[in-house]
Amino acid sequence: MKKILGILILLIVVCGVTAISNQNFVSAYNIQNVTRLTSLFGIISIGVAFVIISGGIDLSIGSVICLIGTMLPYLLAKGVPVPLAFLLVGVLSICIGLAHGLLITKLKLQPFIVTLCGLLIYRGVARGITEDQTQGFGTAHAGLRYLATGKIDLPFIEGFKLPVPFLIMLGLALLAAFLLNKTIFGRYLKAIGNNEAAARYSGINTDRTVIMAYVICSFLAGVGGVLFALDINSVQPEGIGNFYELYAIAAAVLGGCSIRGGEGSILGVVIGAALMRVLRNSITMLGIPSQLEFAIIGAVILVGVITDELVKRYAQKRRANQQSGMYSG
């Protein structure tokens, strides 16, 4: 909870500053858009959080988004029925995670290398299959696209409608939080991330747990790919999802996942993803030239991480003082 507090405050500050300088930031329409994008990025960030907690890393997320995001419209265009197409891309994304996990645990390859190769392979495959043609759903599948672009009326609140992806992310986040905090799998995952040897010496099937983490990560990247494709309706194999793995990792780390493994919270990750999106939105709203966008995002995140570290040290010092006070008293 303490780890989340810093980032939450940063998010509130950014929102506050933007809202004060530009009324439009808090318009229902803008909040809907930011919420939708936060949800899309949140989903892939939750996925990578599992891998990071296990002490690994997944660099292939952007390319998985690309592969799944292009395969869905591609399959539909080939006349594959919708449920079968969904099943196929789902199985494909799970297989990708399975392959990562098996290579990392059984062959003991480094996660960095395995997923880096994945990054190259999946985008290459996507570009090869589609021959670099932009994929889309055209005007068809309006019902499907509701998943990404739909909005639901809320009772009592005038004007604001809840984007459907938010509900999807909420469901996935709750499930993820349950997995991480209430199940044996989650406990094992944290134990492995912190000390794999100790976990193995305690009789834990560490390989299976790690593989599971990569499967979850790739599957959620696949879900993200599907939603991104449904959202923008023009999936360019060469460009879509470039660098998204880094956004996802940044969101997860901002949200309190230690890159050394062992810790992390789903709520934090979602807040991290929200911060990333709100920052981009704020930059527009504040009228900052888009050329400076990345510089500002980088700087704000850095300030956030530094503040977080300082707050943590302060808290540690205070705790040490209190404890020693306890003993001497």
């Binding site: 930031f25 858009n33 994008l37 899309l40 923008i232 023009s234 999936v235 879509i240």
Partner: peptide, 13 residues
């Protein structure tokens, strides 16, 4: 592309 759409949305907002 998602950012291109986000840019358009931001402009509308």
């Amino acid at each position: 592309h998602p950012q291109a759409k986000a840019n358009a949305e931001d402009a509308i907002a």
